[in-house]
């Protein structure tokens, strides 16, 4: 029951993503800097940005993460 709901949610999510990705075919996006005129630029850039940020934070975490009671006296 729950699994089928999650499956349906995923399908509708992917459907929305596809519409947005290909909306660039119909909607003329105004480009200000050249690079942002690239096809589906916001989709690609948003996706890659998040992946980048997560891995940067993982890398920083290696050095800066400590157990919760680190500061307890």
């Amino acid at each position: 029951m729950l699994n089928s709901t999650i499956k349906k949610l995923w399908i509708s999510f992917l459907f929305i993503l596809a519409i947005l990705f290909f909306s660039d075919l119909v909607i003329h996006r105004h480009d200000y800097f050249g690079v942002d005129g690239f096809f589906a630029f916001p989709s690609i850039y948003g996706f890659l940005s998040c992946i980048f940020l997560v891995f940067v934070s993982k890398a920083i975490g290696i050095f800066l993460k400590r157990p919760e009671d680190y500061y307890d006296e």
């Binding site: 990705f21 996006r29 916001p42 690609i44 997560v54």
Partner: peptide, 14 residues
């Protein structure tokens, strides 16, 4: 459309 693309694909990344 730009903002929705940016946010929904961030959601996908999440």
């Amino acid at each position: 459309s730009s903002q929705l693309q940016l946010l929904m694909f961030s959601g996908l990344a999440f």
